[in-house]
Structure formats: C-alpha cells, structure tokens
Design a protein around this nucleic acid. Structure first.
Lengths: 204, 204
DNA sequence: TCCCGTCGCTAGCAATGCTAGAAATCCAGG
DNA sequence: CCTGGATTTCTAGCATTGCTAGCGACGGGA
C-alpha cells in the first residue's frame, strides 16, 4: 500500500482525500444554508442528506453526530464574525467601539441561525484554556482591539468580556422579542457611553 | 346542570375545577423539577406523565403542547426572579444596583434550567405590548428600581434594558463556559462601574 | 480476470411529540 | 340500589427524529 502510493506519486490517495474534504465542507455549508433558510429545527439528518445528495450514514462517516455538524458550522461562523469585525471601520464621527458594536449586532440580526449555533445553543466547544479553535480567538481578538481605545487602566480581557456580554445579551433578547425595538438606538448609545466612561457625554 | 349546581352550592363543579387547577400546577412543578434536576432534554411527555402519575394525554388536556408547559414554567419563573430581586438588599457598603446584579446572576447560576426556559429558549410569550404576564412586568420593574439610583438623566427603560442585557449576556456566556471564571468579579465590577458612570471610581 | 477492501445505501431501531378511539368513571334520576 | 349519558382517562398507535447494522456494489492491485 505504502510502496504503491510512493510509486504513483500519492495521486489516488490524494484525490480521495480531497474529494472527502470537499464533501466535508459541502455538508457544513448545506447545514448552515438550511439552518439560515428554515431554522435549525428543519436541519434533520434526512433533509441534510437529501440536500448533499447522499444518504444519512455518509454524514456519520464525516461527523460523530448532528451536534458535531452544528459545532463545525459554529466554528466557521466565528471565522465569519471575525472577518466582519475586522472589516468594520468607524463611519464618519463614530468610534471604533461603535463600529464594532454595530457590526456585531448586525451579524447577529442578519444571521440568527448561525449566531445561535455559535453562542446560544449548548455545545462542547472548548472555550476554556486548551484547544480553542483559531476562529474563536480571532473573533475575540477583534473585540479586544475594538475596546482598546476606551480601555483606560481597565483589564483588557475583562473589559472585552463585558463588552461582548452586553452585545450578546442585547442580540439574544432582541432576537427573542424581549426588548422594545423602539429603544434600539438609545440602548446602544447608553451602552457605548457607559463603557467609554463619559469621555464626551454630548449624546446624553 | 346549572340549576343543580345552584341548588347544591356549586360544590361538585367547584371541587372538580379545584382538583383540575391543582393538577395543572402539579404538572408545571413536575416539569420544572425534572428540568432542574436533569435538564430540559429529560423532560419528555412520557417522563412527565409518569412523574405526575397520569398518562400523556392528560397533559394535553391542560396544555396545548409541550411548549405551553415550558412557557408556564417560564412565566412562574419570572415570578420567582421578581421575588428574588425584590428581596435583594444591598450588603454592607454595596449599592442597590450591585445587589440586584448579584442576585440576578446567582439566580441564573443556581437555576439554569429555569433561566433557560425564561430567557433563552425560543418561546412565543408576548413581551411586546399586549398581554404581558404580570410576573414579567414585576421582574422588569425590580430591575428598573435597581437602576434608578444611578439613572441620572438617562431614559429609565432603555437603561434598564442595557443593564438587563448585560446581565443576561454574562449569565448565558458564563453558563456556556464561554467566559473565564477568573474574571467573574472583575467583570461585574467593570459593568457596574461603567453603568454608574464613575460616581466613585475607587475600585478601578 | 479475479479478489479484496473500501464505500455508500437500504432497512431498521429506539425514542420523541402528539392523537384517535376505546374503556372506565362519575353523577344525576328512577 | 341500579341505570343512562356524559365526561374523563387510558391504551395503542402514527409520523418523525437521531443513529446504526449489515448488505451490495464499485474499483484498484495481482
């Protein structure tokens, strides 16, 4: 096996692995698309298998179970969020903090299913200390950078966690219809004003 | 039917209604207990029916479906939260805002399943303008009162929404293992300091 | 050409939310 | 104390879910 592989230049094995990787990604994309179109309830193994034009057992040769598929979607979603935050530039007269906050909330609003997989649904993604996926660190890093201008002498990570938590709380409560849309703007102004700690309280 | 009821003093009809109401509450309590002990995944109609010592169809004579049961648990949970917040008195040297925040986070930490039903799980509880359950208004009212001392000239409802959102974000992200427990104290200090807007920044 | 290993599919299992129709229960009236 | 009729409760089952065992087909190496 190994000798033949070496002789023919690993092309057969390689092609198979490549095709497998493509199908792996195809499953993730299909799951995300289906979830974004009809919600996670609609993402059943049967419908997903139908969408990728394979049978259900194929899914299980790529992922340990449905949860693992959702997790893969969530991790790639963190990559998306990191990109969105990185490209969020302050508009005229706005701070970087505000730009990041608005980009974050827009992401949560426009891609609710993806956001749910990332931050709402129960998952065993290791956020702690060990093998944290790079995408997560990227996203968090963008938030840290956004907070830096108003950090003062406060702990960067803790402050970022507060910023993130507030945005996450707003995003999920708004999504659940638990906050009044009337206050959307005021709410964000108040949060940013409080975090910036009265640097210029013109808006108040 | 009505004549006999009037004659015998509505005792038969009354007793039936009372027993029905008791069973109604029994189902809610059983669902909450089961969820708090083993999580919502363990709350199946069969296990719930077994716990109340009836068969599944009985559940459906009281509630439209499983979602309605969860919703009933959630609404009563809001009553619990309102009570907890009302009884949260500032400890020595602490502000009312801090007392409320700590009580809120303790509630979310100690009763995660109940908290999930109230604020995380998707539900069609009318939070908007129409028939909002009293328990919800009570809980929100307690938060409004807690925020009042640091309100200044800011909009009370919007500020309360910010406060609530931040607490909710912290509670859910901590619960999901997405924030570092090391920062638990610092995080709350930063949030309260920001919302109080540097009234006295000794802690920083 | 044959053979073996990999691959994907068909068919099925247990568990879920929910419901129809049978069975049991209960309370007047005789 | 019985009996009829209505209400209530249970048994049994359906469709759907996540997941898996075991068979068949395909393809590359001798």
């Amino acid at each position: 096996m190994s000798s033949s592989a070496r002789l023919c230049g690993v092309t057969i094995q390689d092609r198979r692995e490549r095709e497998r990787a493509e199908r792996h990604q195809l499953i993730i994309d299909a799951a995300r698309d289906l979830a974004e179109q009809e919600g996670w309830d609609a993402v059943t193994t049967r419908r997903l298998a139908e969408k990728v034009e394979y049978s259900q057992p194929v899914l299980y040769s790529h992922f340990k179970g449905k949860d693992a598929i959702v997790r893969a979607v969530a991790i790639q979603g963190c990559g998306d969020l990191a990109r969105v935050l990185r490209e969020a530039r302050p508009s005229r007269g706005g701070s970087r903090l505000r730009a990041a906050a608005e980009a974050y909330l827009r992401f949560a609003r426009e891609r609710p299913a993806l956001y749910d997989a990332m931050f709402v649904q129960r998952s065993d993604i290791p956020w702690g200390t060990d093998e944290v996926p790079r995408e997560l660190l990227d996203a968090f890093g963008e938030l840290v950078a956004a907070v830096e201008p108003v950090r003062r002498d406060r702990d960067p990570e803790a402050l970022t966690e507060v910023f993130w938590s507030s945005l996450h709380g707003i995003a999920t409560l708004v999504r659940g219809g638990r906050l009044r849309p009337v206050h959307d703007d005021t709410r964000l102004d108040l949060l940013l004003g409080a975090l910036s700690l009265a640097q210029h309280e013109d808006g108040l």
